[in-house]
Simulated assay, not measured.
Amino acid sequence: MAKKKSKPELSGISAISPAEAYEAAYFARKCGLTRDEALKIMREAQRSAEATASFSVKRQN
């Protein structure tokens, strides 16, 4: 029996949840971007928010 081929990633972006894919598609439609561009922007914003949150926690101590 042959092995099933794994599905190749379409964009080179790591796996995304269905909710994240839906949000990226919506954002892309509204802003005239591709889904990959929207996902990249969303992830950059998330990283920025996480870095800001960790900085504020360190500062409080």
Rank of each mutant, 00 (worst) to 15 (best):
K4V: 09
A45V: 08
E9G: 15
G12N: 02
S6I: 14
Y26V: 11
G32W: 04
A51Y: 06
L33Q: 01
L10V: 08
Y22L: 05
A53I: 04
T52M: 08
S54T: 12
V57Y: 07
S14V: 15
K4A: 10
K7F: 01
P8N: 02
R59E: 14
R43G: 01
A28D: 01
R47T: 07
K5T: 13
L33R: 02
Q60G: 07
P18Y: 14
E9C: 15
R47Q: 13
M1T: 06
S48L: 10
A53E: 12
K7I: 11
E44S: 08
S56Q: 10
S11W: 11
F55D: 10
S48H: 10
R47I: 05
I13D: 08
M42G: 00
F55Y: 13
A28Y: 02
K40G: 05
E50L: 06
S11H: 12
E50N: 14
E23I: 02
M42Y: 01
R29S: 08
R29P: 00
R29Q: 12
K3Q: 09
E37K: 08
A38Q: 03
P8E: 04
E44G: 00
C31Y: 14
A19S: 11
A15D: 11
V57K: 13
C31F: 09
L10S: 14
G12F: 00
R59L: 13
A51V: 04
E37Y: 00
A38D: 02
T52A: 15
Q60I: 13
A15N: 12
S56W: 09
Q46P: 02
A45K: 14
S56H: 10
E9S: 15
K3W: 11
A25T: 12
Y22Q: 13
A2F: 14
E20Q: 12
K3C: 04
K58H: 03
S14G: 15
E44F: 07
D36A: 10
L10R: 11
A28K: 00
L33P: 00
K5S: 14
P18E: 15
T34G: 09
S14E: 15
F27E: 07
R43D: 03
A53N: 04
E20Y: 01
T34A: 04
C31H: 15
A51Q: 13
S54Q: 14
A24I: 02
M42P: 00
S56D: 14
Q46K: 15
V57A: 14
M42R: 05
A15V: 10
A49D: 13
K40Q: 07
R47F: 02
K30T: 12
E20T: 12
A24L: 03
K7P: 02
A51M: 09
S6G: 11
D36E: 09
A45Y: 04
K58D: 13
F55H: 10
M1Y: 06
Y22R: 10
R43T: 02
A45H: 04
E20H: 06
V57R: 14
M1G: 10
G12I: 00
T52F: 06
R35D: 08
S14M: 15
T52Q: 09
K4H: 08
S11N: 13
Q60C: 06
A49H: 06
A38W: 03
A21V: 01
N61Y: 12
A38P: 01
Q46V: 07
E20D: 12
R29D: 07
R35H: 05
K40Y: 10
A51R: 10
F55S: 09
K7Y: 05
N61D: 15
